[in-house]
C-alpha cells in the first residue's frame, strides 16, 4: 500500500514536474516570439487546392503585435486561406489565459520535439485546441495542429533559417480543410478540352495546402496600421 502511495506520489510529482517543464517551455518560446514587435517580409506563395489553379504568387507578409497579420498579393490575385491569419503562432501564443498540457514527444526531420497541448480557458477564443510540436533545444515551434470553432482544423509546419532567433520561419506549410466548389454549367459555359474534371465533391483528398517561402525579413522596423485594413 505504501509502495502504491509512493508510486502515485512519485508519478504525481513527475507529472507536476513535467507540467511545470512544459509551461516553462511554452513561456520561453513565447518570450522568444515576443521579441518581434513587427515585421514585414516577402514570400512566394504556392497553393495546392484541388479546385484552385493559380501560379506561384509573390506575396508580402506584414505582422504587428499582438496579433495583426496580413498576407497580400499586391500585384495579383491570390486566395489566402483565412486560417493562416487567424491561426498563426503569435495568435496562439498571444492568448491570455490558457492551459498547457504535456502530450509526449516525437522526432520531426531528425529533430526531437516535445508535444504540448494548449487549451484556452476563455470561451471567446476561436481556438478550441492547439497542439504544438516544440524543438526544445532551439525553442522553436516546428509544427502546430489547431482546431478552431469556425474553420476546422489547420496544420502548420515550419522550417527555420537565419531569423530563428526571433522564431520567424523561412518556410511555412498550411494544411486545412477545403470546402466544395461548383458553379452551374450554364453560367461558366466551359470549353470541354478533354482534360479530367477535378470534381471536388468526388475527390478523396479534400485537404488544401498553402506553402509560403519567406525572404527579405524586415524585423521591428515599424509597420503602418493601414496595411492591415
Amino acid at each position: 500500500m505504501k509502495i502504491l502511495v509512493v508510486a502515485i506520489l512519485l508519478l504525481n510529482l513527475n507529472l507536476v514536474n513535467a507540467q511545470t517543464d512544459v509551461e516553462e517551455l511554452v513561456k520561453k518560446v513565447k518570450a522568444k516570439y515576443e521579441k518581434v514587435i513587427d515585421y514585414e517580409a516577402s514570400g512566394k506563395m504556392k497553393t495546392n487546392v484541388l479546385f484552385i489553379k493559380v501560379p506561384i504568387a509573390n506575396v508580402k507578409i506584414y505582422y504587428k503585435k499582438p496579433n495583426k497579420l496580413k498576407i497580400k498579393n499586391e500585384n495579383g490575385v491570390s486566395f489566402i486561406p483565412k486560417g493562416t491569419i487567424n491561426v498563426n503562432m503569435n495568435n496562439v501564443l498571444s492568448m491570455k489565459n490558457y492551459q498547457v498540457i504535456e502530450a509526449g514527444s516525437e522526432v520531426i526531420d531528425g529533430t526531437p520535439v516535445t508535444i504540448v497541448k494548449i487549451l484556452p480557458e476563455e470561451d471567446t477564443e476561436d481556438v478550441v485546441l492547439s497542439k504544438l510540436y516544440i524543438d526544445t533545444k532551439n525553442l522553436l515551434v516546428l509544427k502546430s495542429i489547431t482546431t478552431t470553432k469556425e474553420n476546422g482544423t489547420y496544420e502548420i509546419s515550419m522550417q527555420y533559417g537565419e531569423h530563428s532567433d526571433y522564431g520567424l520561419p523561412k518556410k511555412v506549410k498550411f494544411s486545412f480543410n477545403a470546402k466544395g466548389y461548383k458553379l452551374p454549367k450554364g453560367i461558366t459555359f466551359d470549353y470541354d478540352n478533354g482534360a479530367a474534371k477535378s470534381d471536388f465533391d468526388k475527390a478523396e483528398n479534400k485537404k488544401g495546402k498553402v506553402e509560403i517561402t519567406y525572404s527579405a525579413y524586415s524585423i521591428n522596423k515599424g509597420v503602418k496600421d493601414e496595411v492591415f485594413k
Partner: peptide, 11 residues
C-alpha cells in the same frame, strides 16, 4: 471561374 475549379493566370 469554371464549373469545377477556378483558374488564375499571371498578368
Amino acid at each position: 471561374g469554371r464549373q469545377f475549379d477556378v483558374i488564375v493566370l499571371e498578368a
